[in-house]
Design a binder for these strands. Structure first.
Lengths: 208, 208
DNA sequence: ACCGGGGTGTTACCCCCGGTAACATCGTCG
DNA sequence: CGACGATGTTACCGGGGGTAACACCCCGGT
């Protein structure tokens, strides 16, 4: 049996274990789940990071290409943005546990999984940057704005999607609307409230 | 000598070591830097997480209160938003190493510092949410929008600020403008570019 | 003067984890 | 057959987090 299929099997096992025990699962545990012992894992993945990386690449690959495709869709701008947002949210919605453990390495966990999503996010940010650069007329500042916005939008969607996935405060389409509205300047356009009380916030000096 | 001062000294030592060796610094190393041995650290902080938590609370406290104050400033909306953005960027600019190691636990690092910033960010998000709820008229959807936007804006600023700090592509004030412009819907308002080529992106199947 | 408690600190140890070395086995191709 | 490339094993190492047990030191109370 050539390397690749076995690799897949091992990744599957690692996946199961990590879903069950969290990202701090030990190499021993993963090996045991696969019915083998550690050195084999190391032969295939080099070190723990290699395993984690392979795992996350597998998980994020689909999402990344989906977002890429959504960005290239020939739609009106607002529709395209909504489409991208929806694609991302649908992606993380499809595998919430996976997504969660990629982004939220439970505290006190000796694993490098915290930034495992980082590469994928960086790539998404780059895609958005490129799309903005090629599709939107921003004048002289285009490069700077496109880059800053690419990162910013990615981070925005990450954080907001994260919260949405945890609390599920509304349907996906409504969430898409909320985020698109934010990007469409609704925060800027809305009227002021009549400056109610606002006593510098009650703010108990509570720490976390 | 009562507990508190010693605690501060230990935190200072931990700080130095972590700045020097990265967040993966061992408890042994920290203890050595403080001129003592491990059990004392454990007496004061319980476990490694306690130490890290105390450390990050110290570092993020100032930033958090600064942002809180900026949010309450009695300014025009755009000015207030810019003020908040500038406050945040100035905060991370002031201690780049600290910020970086809080957010970017170098890969392959067995430390729980990756999410150390998370509580502070959560609090910032809550502050923004409250501010939006109390200051902006958003109609029936106000609660949902305020919450989603609070998270979204926080994530946006985090990601964009992160990138800005790493690459320093422009002055702080320009960065503030770029982000405020994004929130003000400049992406939505800008004209289309004449749909150049855009062949679905070359996209070598390259990983990372 | 004596003791006890709360602080300081130590050495020595445990368990587990990531990672490696050395060795044994099986199937396939020349 | 023999070599090769895969499979797998046991046994070990270094080091990290965390704890137990013990020792000192000072200060306030009786």
């Amino acid at each position: 049996m050539s390397r690749e299929p076995r690799r897949e099997q091992l990744l599957n096992a690692a996946d199961r274990v990590i879903q069950r025990e969290g990202p701090s699962a030990s190499m021993n545990a993963i090996a045991a789940e696969a019915g083998i012992t550690k050195p084999i894992l190391y032969r295939h993945f080099g070190d723990r990071n290699g395993l984690i990386r392979a795992l996350t690449e597998r998980h994020t690959g689909g999402l990344l290409t989906a977002v890429r495709a959504a960005l290239a869709e020939p739609l009106e701008r607002r529709d395209r943005v909504e489409h991208v947002l929806d694609t991302y949210l649908a992606g993380i919605e499809a595998r919430p546990q996976v997504y969660r453990l990629l982004t939220h390495p439970e505290p006190g966990d000796p694993s490098g999984a915290g930034n495992a999503l980082a590469p994928a996010l960086r790539q998404i940010a780059e895609e958005i940057t490129r799309a903005v650069q090629h599709q939107v007329d921003l004048g002289a500042d285009r490069d700077l704005l496109a880059e800053a916005w690419g990162r910013g939008i990615t981070g925005m969607v990450l954080a907001a999607g994260d919260w949405w996935l945890e609390t599920r405060p509304c349907s996906r389409t409504r969430m898409v609307q909320a985020l698109a509205d934010l990007l469409w300047g609704r925060l800027a356009a809305a009227a002021d409230l009549p400056t109610a009380v606002l006593p510098t916030a009650p703010a108990e000096p509570n720490g976390d």
